[in-house]
Amino acid sequence: MIKVLIIEDDPMVANINKLYLLKVPGFSLAGIVHSGTEALNFLSENSRKVDLILLDVFMPQMDGLTFLRELKLKSPDIDVIMVTAAQSVDSVRAALSRGVVDYIIKPFTYERMSVALNSYRSRYNILRNNKSLEQTVLDKEFFSKESTSDDSLPKSVEAHTLCIVKDRLAQQIRPCSTQELAEIIGISRVSLRKYLIYLENMGDIKSTLTYRHKGRPTQMYQYVGKNDI
């Protein structure tokens, strides 16, 4: 499990972060603190129990960007996803220069958070389970050098989420329903359906109707691997 520390001074937002985090498979909550100062104290005793931090910028005592600078000096192996209302170019530039792996602007949706977490989990597992990496893996998982650009996709289909949906389907050993796949990926069925329709139209997946003992037949999806994203 990927252990996550939430640093957020607003209790309501901290709870939303917690609820969203625990809905995505593969993550556990290491703790919640309310300022950069509290976070440094927490990490001084629990640094080995934290892999990832969800970090706000605007906080009392020590703001998120100051904390981020201190974190990279003391615990450089801990990754950070910014979850903040800070939209200024200076804030974004400072966060990126200090190595954040994603930047989510409040207010945000569960789908956006799940995309960030799923993407991070994929990269985390790749780095943990491999001693060397090929260029294609680096391009796909870390540097977004995909052969298909966003301009070629429908407006309702986001390239990174499309990659995640395709990859998760490719990993399944049997056909999946929309409900099953939505739970695996961590997005809503409504959002997922547009990606399934697109992938089926492109020939990457196929669907079949399965008749169960009760209720209406269920549409099942299976990866066939005709095209690459």
Rank of each mutant, 00 (worst) to 15 (best):
P154L: 07
V50E: 03
K155W: 06
T161I: 09
E111V: 07
I205R: 03
D228A: 04
E180H: 01
S149G: 11
K155N: 11
G99K: 11
Q179E: 13
E70F: 07
D228Q: 10
L181R: 00
D167K: 12
I32C: 09
R123L: 08
P76S: 03
P11Q: 09
V165H: 00
Y223F: 15
K23P: 02
H213V: 04
M202T: 05
L127N: 05
L209D: 08
L22F: 04
N41P: 00
V224L: 12
E134T: 12
V83W: 04
Y103I: 04
D90I: 13
N227Y: 05
F108L: 09
D150P: 07
P175N: 02
A116Y: 07
A159W: 03
Y110T: 08
L169K: 08
S191T: 14
I184N: 02
V4L: 11
M202K: 10
S47E: 10
S28P: 00
V24K: 14
S152F: 09
R121Q: 06
A170T: 09
N125H: 09
S191D: 12
A30W: 05
D10V: 10
S91Y: 13
R128T: 12
M202G: 00
N17R: 06
V33C: 07
A182F: 06
Y211V: 10
E70D: 08
L71M: 10
N227P: 00
P107G: 06
S114K: 11
Y103E: 00
L96E: 07
P217Y: 15
E70H: 12
C176E: 07
K49H: 09
Y20A: 01
L29M: 07
I229N: 14
G64M: 11
V24M: 10
V4F: 07
A30K: 05
Q172D: 04
K131R: 10
V224Y: 06
V13G: 02
T178A: 15
E146N: 11
R216P: 04
C163M: 13
D139M: 09
S28Q: 09
N118S: 13
E141W: 15
G99A: 09
D90Q: 15
L192G: 09
R121N: 14
K3A: 10
R216T: 14
N46P: 01
Q179P: 02
K3S: 14
S144M: 08
N130V: 00
K106H: 03
Y211C: 01
G99D: 08
C163R: 07
S207A: 07
D56F: 11
A14L: 08
Y211K: 15
P175Y: 08
S144V: 12
Q171R: 13
Q179M: 06
L43A: 00
D77P: 00
T178Q: 14
S144I: 08
L181V: 10
M59D: 13
C163N: 11
R69F: 05
V157L: 01
V83R: 12
L65S: 10
I78E: 06
V83G: 14
R212I: 03
D204V: 05
D51N: 15
I78P: 06
K206S: 04
I185K: 12
R121V: 00
I185Y: 07
K166Q: 14
G26W: 04
K155R: 09
R123A: 01
T178Y: 02
F42W: 05
V89S: 11
I104M: 00
D51W: 03
M82C: 15
D204E: 13
K140T: 12
L209Q: 08
S188W: 01
D204F: 05
L29A: 06
R48M: 10
I184Q: 06
R189G: 14
S97R: 10
